[in-house]
Design a binder for these strands. Structure first.
Lengths: 112, 112
DNA sequence: CGGAATCCGTTACGATACTG
DNA sequence: CAGTATCGTAACGGATTCCG
């Protein structure tokens, strides 16, 4: 009886949207990639690679694929040699700007 | 020369505050814990354990320690038998409410 | 009740090398 | 240039047991 009440009271924790957010947009690299694309509109693979301190090509391409699947990033490839691929945000991706900005401000104020 | 320009242009990516945020507040469990404490003010270890679907005691105590170290959560222990320990947010912790709320809204709108 | 200790599997991440 | 493929390590996370 009491257990049932507790279950009900704290039900919010299940399928928590914040958790889903963290699982999908969080992680070590995705926010940086998104942030760079907010600042620079469009970037090539190689530019992202150079811009992100310490990332490997493997990780970068993996994270970009994830973000593409999530419809946050658009990939545009030109059939030239040498290859040229551009990445930019979708509208959905751009809509993250305010969230990331306020997180950034909080972080600057509160985290070392 | 050109390299130097690129380095400069994308310097934002180093020590990115959003990355720091994700590393410290992100992850699978921390946001849920914080959110529950926002909703319920004060909770005991056991209540958190029951409220968070699928968490193990090990993870819970580990995450609570992390959050305590970050000064986001306050721990209050009563010297009684059986033991009683309460967790609540610090002011710093409470200041995350707006961030988490807007993340939650975005998540509800944009993530499955 | 509120943990700590242990064991163990899975995933994330990283370094390096290679390719169309 | 824009990636794959391969391999090794480290961190994460879960299950179980034990204890004051």
């Amino acid at each position: 009886m009491a257990e049932k009440l507790i279950e009900k009271k704290y039900q919010q924790a299940k399928e928590c949207p914040i958790t889903i957010f963290m699982e999908q947009i969080g992680g070590k690299w995705k926010p940086v990639i998104i942030w760079l694309l907010i600042l620079n509109e469009v970037m090539r693979f190689n530019e992202l690679d150079k811009a992100i301190n310490g990332i490997s090509q493997k990780m970068l391409s993996q994270q970009l694929k994830d973000l593409e699947r999530l419809k946050i990033v658009k990939r545009k490839s030109y059939p030239v040699i040498p290859p040229k691929v551009e990445y930019r945000l979708t509208e959905k991706g751009k809509s993250l700007k305010e969230n990331l900005t306020s997180i950034m401000e909080w972080s600057n104020k509160n985290l070392k």
